[in-house]
Design a protein around this nucleic acid. Structure first.
Length: 419
RNA sequence: GUGGGUGUAGCUCAGAUGGUAGAGCACUGGAUUGUGGCUCCAGUUGUCGAGGGUUCGAUCCCCUUCACUCACCCCA
């Protein structure tokens, strides 16, 4: 039986790698001007870290983590998201003692044990950014601005920014209570999922996709009406500054986040082009997280972008496969070996050069050159070898010239520059 | 964890009320003894996802299982 990869864990093949390189290079170009530095943390952490940060009652912790004991019996978990690990590193290295505000970003694989579907895999990749140590709504807006700039830089214009506020420990319990009362009054018209949800997470009912539930919750109490004065002012400032920066957004008072640690500002970037999993990026403020992990009482805000979902949105035809500069065709045993060392010289000089090693017919070699879309073909046969010459053929127009071998390099760079 | 769809050549897919399979593309060679793309000719490729059952005989019918895929739950 063939050994296959693990369900939901995909190989990224050479044909797809250009899109990944593109995203990674855009991150490294767009983020640093906003003051962000990259951090790399391990993919494995002690299980306890995720239980405490994401929340014991969340689906992620309850059923979606890759958790197993190592040889000494410690329970380890493949990270299901990046924020927890970054906060652990922040606290462990006492980064708060260096800078009052720390801005960090990361790129890498995350792991969740779920049934794969379009835009959702067991190993997936996220680009994340965090601002730690800043309470001001300016931090929220800077982060969102950077997120939108990033989307613009990769040519995505049809993602919609949705914004909400979840309040803080001062005002959220009151809202939750009011909502629970409302839902209890409509329980008979809600779907079975929502009836179950209203027990442990009433906010989720607002997010239900069932039409009947949506209409039933039409006039449910809004979080935004229950925000305390501080949260309300914070949210108003975020909206005002976004408008000042010409960043389009939409307030979605039904938006709920799946992780326990979020407070105040939460947001999502959604797209209709993604199928059912329509969020391509999401995040929010987590003012209590760092303290709850044993760090100082500093606030934070961050986002994560799903790279696979991003790639679904990109036009794949804008990433043409890279083509060789040169394909060397040889005829005869002597030319094969002489050509091979010539090839090596070209490659050392940084040209992308290929040839056939197996002594195929000239027609076959030419076909190969055409197939890989080489720009130039070099032809080295017994005749050319005897005269210390080589032929250069431009594949686009079929024009051909014979040049002395010792003048090859400068002529090649001329011809390549002209294409 | 639940539900639907799909598994036939490297790829995309046909196929027959059960008699052990085909096309296009791709690949190789030739027409053009040292010149690609177009055209023409020839050739290669399959445990018909796996296991079991019914049958003289199963790729097709039945059961089981696995994989892929979409959706639910939930999430990036």
């Amino acid at each position: 039986m063939m050994i296959t990869g693990i369900k939901g864990m995909n190989d990224i093949l050479p044909a797809e790698i250009a899109a990944w390189h593109f995203l990674e290079s855009q991150v490294r170009e767009v983020f640093p001007p906003f003051g962000f530095n990259e951090i790399r943390v391990p993919v494995l952490e002690k299980t306890e870290l995720f239980c405490r940060s994401i929340g014991d009652d969340t689906d992620i912790v309850e059923k979606e983590m890759y958790t197993f004991p190592d040889k000494s019996g410690h329970s380890l978990t493949l990270r299901p998201e990046g924020t927890a690990s970054v906060m652990r590193a922040y606290i462990e290295h006492k980064m708060y003692a260096q800078n009052q505000v720390e801005k960090l970003y990361y790129v890498g694989p995350m792991f969740r044990y779920e049934r794969p579907q379009k835009g959702r895999y067991r190993q997936f990749h996220q680009i994340g950014a965090e601002i730690i140590g800043e309470t001001s709504p300016l931090a929220d807006v800077q982060l969102l601005n950077m997120l939108c700039r990033f989307f613009g830089s990769i040519g995505i214009r049809d993602a919609l920014l949705q914004l909400n506020s979840l309040g803080c420990p001062a005002c959220r319990p009151g809202y939750r209570q009011a909502l629970a009362v409302f839902i209890a009054s409509r329980l008979d018209v809600l779907c079975s999922d929502c009836r179950r949800r209203h027990q442990h997470n009433p906010l989720r009912v607002l997010d239900c996709k069932v039409e009947q539930c949506r209409t039933a919750c039409q006039d449910a109490p809004s979080v935004l009406d229950h925000l305390c004065a501080d949260c309300s002012t914070h949210f108003a400032t975020v909206r005002r500054l976004l408008t000042d920066l010409n960043i389009p957004f939409e307030v979605n008072k039904r938006m709920v986040r799946g992780l326990d640690y979020y407070t105040r500002t939460t947001f999502e970037m959604v797209s209709s082009r993604l199928g059912s999993q329509n969020a391509v990026a999401a995040g929010g403020r987590y003012d209590g997280l760092i303290a709850s992990l044993g760090g100082p009482p500093v606030p934070g805000i961050g986002f994560a972008i799903g790279m696979e979902r991003l790639i679904l949105m990109l036009n794949s035809s804008s990433f043409p496969p890279s083509r060789p500069d040169i394909f060397l065709v040889t005829l005869g045993d002597k030319a094969l070996e002489k050509g091979f060392s010539l090839l090596s010289g070209l490659q050392v000089d940084g040209l992308r050069a290929e040839m056939d090693f197996s002594g195929k017919s000239m027609k076959a070699q030419m076909r190969r050159a055409d197939k890989v879309q080489a720009r130039l073909v070099l032809i080295l046969g017994e005749d050319e070898l005897a005269r210390n010459q080589i032929q250069i053929r431009a594949m686009d127009d079929g024009s051909q010239e014979t040049v002395d071998l010792d003048r090859l390099l400068p002529i090649l760079s001329d011809r390549l520059a002209a294409i």
